[in-house]
Structures are given as C-alpha cells and as structure tokens.
C-alpha cells in the first residue's frame, strides 16, 4: 500500500552504457555495409600471390586466408551480405507476420482460428528444418536463404502482434475510445496499433540478431551465397580448413557475428519488448 510496494528502481533514470555501446557496434557494421572501401583498401576477392595464411600484422590486421586474401577486407565486405540478408528476413517476417497477427487479433472468429492454426503449424517444424525445406523449394542463394529465414520468423511475429492487439483491445482505454464515439478504424489507428507495435518493434530488433545467426548457419552449411562472396558464415566454413594453422580466420568473423547479435539483442531489450 505504501512506499514499500513500489519498485523504486523503475523510477530512476538509469545510465545505460550497454545500450549505447550496442548502438555504436551496429552503426559501425552498417557503415561497413554501406561504404566498405572507407574501412579497408584491399579487395575482398582478389588474393595476393605468395601471401597465403599470414598471421595478423599491421598490413593485414586479421591475417590472410588460404588464397592470400585480406581477412579484414573479407569481414568488412561481408557485412553487406549479412546485413542485407537480415533486413530482408526481418522485413518478410515483420510484414507477413504482423499483417497476419493484426488481422487475426482485430477480426477474431474464424480468421483468428485459421491464422493461429497456420502459426501452430509453422512452429511445429524446427526452425532449421523449415528454412531448409523452403530453401529446397526456392533454391540456394543469399536472398533465397534470407526469405527462408524470414518465413520461419513469420510465426513469432504473428503470435506476438496478435497477443498485443488482443491485450490492447481488452484495455480500458480502447473501450473508452469506443465509448467516446470512436469508429473502429479510428480506434485501431489511434490506439490499438501504436500501443501494440512497440513490442513488435522490439521483436524485430531481436529477430535481426537471430536472422544474422540463422543466415550465417545456412552460409556455413553452404546454402547461402556461393564462394567467393564474403559472407560471415562462409568465411567461418572456409577458415575451418586451416584451423590448426590459422585459427584467426575462423575466430574473427565469428566474433563479429557474436557482437552484432548481442548488440541487436541489447537494443531489442532497450526498446522494451518481451524478454527473449
């Protein structure tokens, strides 16, 4: 009843260095993707003869790979492939999933039942197997892999956005909006969508990280972009052959993936959506 019951921590504005760091990491990687030549002068595909498998040095901060290509250049240029793929995947999942979820939550009845059974079905197949099935349908390639990863995410977006729409619809303020004479479309637009989409946005950030993970997995297994495209998963797969001699070839792209996914997750939590 009195002060003891209040969570005091919530009231204090907290300094959140982690969030800023996460934003900085993503900003840097985005810059890699947009203008890679600003960050490295070397080519990601042309090898330097006689400079194979060099350890990290000033000239090659991350060393060179088995064909004498600069590893830093390959990681930097790889950002484009990975981020573009993740964007496509999140866009597919967000648009299809949220569309379906909002439709189901707002219309209810048989529409809701049908959409939710579809979601159940998508969720019943393990994510990796579902994306592999879609890849068999679409064929190999980076955009196709991205679409496959996006379709896997449809179920989660649909489920969350439907739940959010239902939560907001059941709220007093939506009833009050109808009670003050609001029409269905106006209430949906003014109250239901703005209040339900915050956590969908947070999920999008989380899914961005998951998509990068899933895409690198598909790339590693060889279903994504074909060599010599620098893609992070593919880089790890290639570096694996030289594991005993040049461990940095696998370590560096992997660490970049970890950092990017961690940052996306941190930002997703910062937006204030559901905890993963």
């Amino acid at each position: 009843m009195s002060g003891a019951a209040l969570p005091l921590r919530a009231g204090l504005p907290r300094l959140r260095p982690g969030l800023w760091l996460a934003c900085a990491v993503l900003a840097l990687v985005f810059a890699w993707a947009v203008a890679p030549s600003l960050f490295t002068a070397r080519s990601p595909v042309e090898g330097i003869p006689g400079a194979q498998l060099l350890p990290p040095s000033w000239a090659h901060p991350l060393g060179t790979d088995g064909l004498g290509r600069d590893q830093l250049a390959r990681v930097v240029y790889g950002a484009r492939e990975s981020l573009a793929g993740a964007f496509v995947a999140v866009a597919v999942g967000l648009l299809l999933g949220t569309g379906l979820g909002v439709l189901a939550g707002a219309r209810g009845g048989w529409v809701d039942a049908a959409v939710m059974r579809l979601v159940d079905t998508l969720l019943a197949i393990p994510a990796l197997l579902l994306s592999l099935s879609i890849i068999i349908l679409l064929g190999f390639g980076s955009i196709k892999a991205a679409v496959a990863v996006g379709i896997v995410a449809v179920a989660q977006f649909a489920r969350l956005s439907r739940a959010e729409v239902l939560r907001v619809r059941a709220s007093d303020y939506v009833e009050a909006a109808f009670g003050s004479g609001g029409r269905f479309a106006a209430v949906l637009w003014r109250h239901v969508l703005p209040n339900s989409l915050t956590s969908v946005l947070a999920l999008a950030a989380l899914q961005f990280g998951s998509a990068i993970l899933a895409l690198s997995t598909l790339g590693f297994l060889g279903y994504g972009a074909p060599p010599p495209t620098p893609e992070w998963g593919l880089l790890i797969a290639e570096g694996r052959d030289f594991l005993a001699r040049a461990w940095w070839l696998t370590a560096s792209p992997g660490l970049v993936v970890v950092l990017v996914v961690l940052s996306a997750e941190r930002i997703g939590r910062g937006i204030g959506g559901p905890s993963p």
Partner: peptide, 9 residues
C-alpha cells in the same frame, strides 16, 4: 551471450 554465439562457430 550464449544466445548470440553461432552453434557451428
């Protein structure tokens, strides 16, 4: 951190 690590890596 654990969630962010690619399994294969």
């Amino acid at each position: 951190l654990f969630v962010a690590v690619p399994v294969f890596w």
